[in-house]
Design a protein around this nucleic acid. Structure first.
Length: 498
DNA sequence: GGACGGTGAAACTTCAGGTTGCCTC
DNA sequence: GAAGTTTCACCGTCC
């Protein structure tokens, strides 16, 4: 292996390496351990790059206009992209991620500073990979990342089609750290792979679905099935395994998702649906409890937002900052009447998480009241990409809640939940519902129309095409008119209108 | 004497990512 | 554990 001295014009080794890569006219990925750090590193590099080209300007603009109202994060990304540098993490809008990945593949974007997201799933090889942080914050504070993660990141180096070799560079702060890295990652063994089946939610879901689909019905069959899994193979102790499965069966029965009759297990209608919806039975059970409570008290949209926020699926939650602690507490008190989850006491272990769920619900609530991504970023520290992920899950959970309310014969709740779900999906108030049914009309356009007194499909019909075109643009105005059944009328009127 | 502003050190805060689900409200 | 952010004491300046 050849050795080469790299010039170090910067104090920060990552910067020097980045510029060395640019000088070689190659590309690199820089792995760091936080989103903030990814953004900052990219920015630092970009600040020192002089070259700008028109290609990059268009990308930068595209990235900025990915959202109807650009956030601070968008501006920052746009600034970096103008220099051919990018940062990449789960907080980015999907469209922005697409742009970055595509342009990196094309060789237009030279450097991506990213969190470990990019190491998995995506096929984005680079000549050089720089692993800046080999430690990551976890349960026991800052700890060395698993060897598997290191290999996954280092494995991005070298593009088979273009380079005969690749470079993976790990950065050590001290000599002793250097030793440690060589020991741990270069000579170390990857950790053994563990079956995920042993994770409780997975086991619960799996077990219920096996019964619901009638793949198995007696205990004996169930044990037999699991004995053949990788989990059992790893576990080696089949009696303990059986204890775990038995306990799980008891729970599923207690939750009324399965029933035992003459040694045969069958899923109940509710259990069947839960299994089809692919939701953790524990979450489903908690929902049934909440819905029962909801049926006998006054509830509003927020009740359900908090209910879904207080589930495993919604994690990680929006965290209550130390400063906000009291404020959130008082808010909880004022919402007390409508909450349908079981509220833990201030000294219970789950209390913090309960407050987090409440804050998460507040965030969702702001979204459905038409607050912008920027507002949510500023006030809840939720980035656009994370917001979208949360919204998807929230919508799905509300759907399952809706389905369950039907099976439980809570018709009044059903309507309530369906409404909440629609509002989560579009991030809009109820008054925009009619307009949102139109294709190409999201909350922004709907709000524009509404502000001009065009409030429903009838108004759209009555509205002058030119007015619509001014608000929505010509193409969309036409499409909208067509959707309300007035296609030919406008082609004429629109002639000469640009 | 007091309001204001700048400075730096200490105290505090925060920290990756994630697949499927369902079907129209 | 470390980087980034906020808070706060301290000092000098100006009115």
């Amino acid at each position: 292996m050849e050795k080469r001295k790299i010039q170090t014009p910067f104090d920060e080794p990552v910067l020097s390496l980045a510029f060395d890569t640019l000088k070689l006219n190659k590309q690199c990925l820089i792995f760091v351990n936080t989103k903030r750090s990814a953004e900052k590193t990219a920015e630092e590099i970009a600040k020192n790059v002089t070259a700008e080209n028109p290609d990059l300007l268009t990308i930068a603009l595209d990235a900025k206009s990915a959202l109807s109202s650009p956030t601070h994060q968008c501006e920052r990304l746009s600034f970096c992209l103008r220099k051919g540098i990018a940062f990449h993490h789960s907080g980015l809008a999907a469209k922005q991620r697409e742009i970055i990945e595509e342009k990196f593949k094309e060789g237009v974007v030279k450097i991506i500073c990213c969190t470990p997201t990019l190491a998995y799933g995506l096929d984005l090889p680079a000549f050089r990979v720089i692993i800046k942080d080999l430690k990551r914050f976890g349960r026991q504070g800052l700890a060395w990342i698993p060897v598997l993660d290191y290999l996954q990141q280092a494995g991005r180096a070298g593009r088979p089609k273009y380079d005969s070799r690749g470079e993976a560079i790990a950065i050590a702060q001290t000599d002793s750290e250097k030793e440690k890295i060589i020991d741990l990652y270069i000579h170390g063994e990857p950790e053994p792979i563990h079956s995920k089946l042993a994770v409780e939610p997975a086991l619960r879901m799996y077990l219920l679905s096996l019964i619901a689909t009638e793949m198995v019905s007696s205990k004996k069959e169930i044990f037999l099935f699991f004995e053949k899994t990788f989990w059992a193979h790893q576990y080696q102790d089949s009696s303990r395994l059986e204890t775990i499965i038995e306990r799980m069966l008891e729970l599923l029965e207690e939750w009324e998702f399965i029933r035992e009759n003459e040694e045969q297990y069958r899923a109940t209608p509710l259990g069947n649906r839960v299994s089809q919806l692919y939701i953790d039975p524990f979450t489903a059970f908690q929902m049934t409890e909440c819905l029962r409570r909801a049926a006998s008290k006054t509830v509003d949209t927020f009740s359900f937002l908090q209910m879904i926020s207080y589930t495993l699926e919604m994690r990680p939650l929006v965290k209550v900052k130390t400063k906000e602690f009291e404020e959130i507490q008082t808010q909880v008190a004022s919402f007390h009447e409508v909450l349908i989850t079981e509220e833990p006491g201030p000294f219970d272990a789950e209390y913090d998480e309960f407050l987090d769920s409440f804050k998460t619900a507040l965030m969702l609530h702001e979204w459905m009241n038409e607050q912008t991504e920027e507002f949510l970023l500023e006030n809840f520290s939720v980035r656009p990409g994370e917001l979208q992920a949360k919204l998807d899950i929230a919508e799905w959970l509300l759907y399952t809640a809706q389905e369950m309310s039907t099976l439980m014969h809570f018709q009044s709740l059903h309507r309530h939940i369906a409404k909440a779900r629609f509002r989560i999906k579009y991030g809009a108030k109820e008054e925009l519902f009619a307009l949102l049914r139109l294709e190409n009309i999201g909350r922004v356009r709907a709000r524009k129309l509404f502000a001009q007194g065009i409030k429903d499909l009838g108004d759209v019909k009555k509205a002058d095409i030119e007015v619509l075109a001014r608000l929505l643009g010509k193409g969309i105005a036409q499409s909208v008119k067509k959707q309300v059944g007035q296609p030919e009328l406008l082609t004429k009127t629109l002639e000469g209108f640009t």
